[in-house]
Design a protein around this nucleic acid. Structure first.
Lengths: 249, 249
DNA sequence: CGGGTTATTGATGGTGTTCAAGGGGTGTGG
DNA sequence: CCACACCCCTTGAACACCATCAATAACCCG
């Protein structure tokens, strides 16, 4: 894990730079503030958060934390994508989710991370030391409430994904993934039929409980059927209705 | 859903009856208090909870709430077992978990239940009206903190179950289920090699993403191999080590 | 270019499903 | 008290979906 504090993406800094203090990105102007747990704090309170926040970034393929690591830092993602996964001793892997801007890592109050997080792209994030963040949370019930809101939302998402893993056929799983990923992107990037896929086929397979071949074949068939179109580093969705139908509503 | 408030199990009432007011079971003496969210409150605070609590019970096979219902009440289970599940329109079902004494139903803060809960056995529970419970939670940060703790613990459990559903083979899934259920029972009933299984084979299958035949065959084989023993309404675990080995540590 | 990684595509096979029939327990009514 | 129905579970046989194996192709970055 190679975290370089105090360096951060120029583009991010630029978009968030409205203060005169030499262009340090602050929480108040953060581009993901409204998407994240930080939205629970008002302009005054957010200065407290600012005081304990460190910028950090992470190169692609690097690991932010591994399952079993002490959770000494917590994170809010401001740019990029990570994969969160459990690894079995024999190499089998389950990706429980992908984290993107606005997502919080370290929701669980347990002292160790239960899963591994590694970067799929260059990632920018805000780092908080756990004791300080916890103290701030205890001082601001609205923050605690927000954390709980986020955690229970994550729980609902996890339970929905159980249905996918337990009861959906291969084609339905891929359709479910594409649609959900597309909708998440819409939330932070605005609507667009073009869906960047920073994760590889193997990652999609490991998220859906399939093999890379099954994912590849499914996407290839949809391209032949003009449901999706192959574009660099992603796909373009030509027929969203067909994908929806596969999920049976 | 046939909830009869103010009636509750005689045995429960007896075990919790230490006040002179005609033997009304109170939170202070609740047998699941230390297992539940209520453990966050001290003796004084818990009287507030007591004031807004209603006893209720539910007969086997009855539904407490269904996916989409308005979450007007929240519950703590004091006795019995429920199954929590999502149903797909075509009848496929995923049981995301089984709820037992000490468990809280309605963690989510969202206005509607995302899943269906129905009783496998006779169930006794404490019911709280949502607005009142929420108000109490806002007044007591320790309660909010506890709710968040429970929610994030549930999240961790859900993510572990994703590994089972996505990456484990049939035999491993059943072994994982048996061991986890056994450990949960130990927590509330004390250690015992005898594991009651209030859920049917179909329920186990729907929890593990398998068919009833596969579950039945797996358990039958283990009985032949003397890993488990068939007992009425459950099994006795003869060789826990063999089960553990199947999970690969 | 060249080496390594990742993705595609085809052929084959296995694990778990599906289909089908029968067993065992329980509750009910004759 | 037994017969019967019903439900749940078990067991067997055939099949199907997806995994596995294998070879090639595309890609990326040095």
């Amino acid at each position: 894990m190679e975290l370089d504090d105090r360096s951060f993406e120029p583009s991010l800094a630029a978009s968030g730079c409205f203060d005169a203090s030499g262009c340090r990105s602050v929480c108040q102007n953060c581009r993901v503030r409204l998407l994240s747990v930080c939205s629970a704090l008002d302009d005054h309170e957010i200065h407290e958060l600012d005081a304990i926040m460190h910028h950090a970034s992470l190169a692609p393929k690097n690991t932010l934390f591994s399952q079993g690591d002490a959770a000494t830092s917590l994170y809010t993602i401001t740019a990029g994508t990570l994969r969160l996964h459990y690894d079995l001793p024999d190499g089998r892997r389950q990706i429980v989710g992908f984290a993107m801007p606005g997502d919080f890592l370290g929701l669980s109050l347990e002292p160790r991370f239960g899963l591994t997080a590694d970067a799929l792209t260059k990632v920018s994030l805000c780092r908080f030391e756990r004791p300080r963040f916890m103290a701030l949370m205890e001082r601001h019930p609205s923050m605690m409430r927000k954390m709980h809101e986020v955690a229970s939302h994550e729980l609902a998402i996890a339970q929905e994904h159980m249905v996918v893993l337990g009861r959906r056929r291969a084609e339905e799983r891929v359709a479910s993934f594409l649609i959900k990923w597309w909708q998440r992107l819409k939330r932070i990037q605005g609507p667009s039929p073009t869906v960047p896929l920073p994760m590889g086929r193997q990652d999609i397979a490991d998220h859906l409980g399939l093999t890379i071949e099954t994912v590849s074949r499914t996407l290839a068939r949809w391209m032949r059927e003009r449901i999706i179109l192959d574009v660099p580093d992603g796909v373009r969705i030509l027929d969203p209705a067909r994908l929806q139908e596969m999920l049976g509503n």
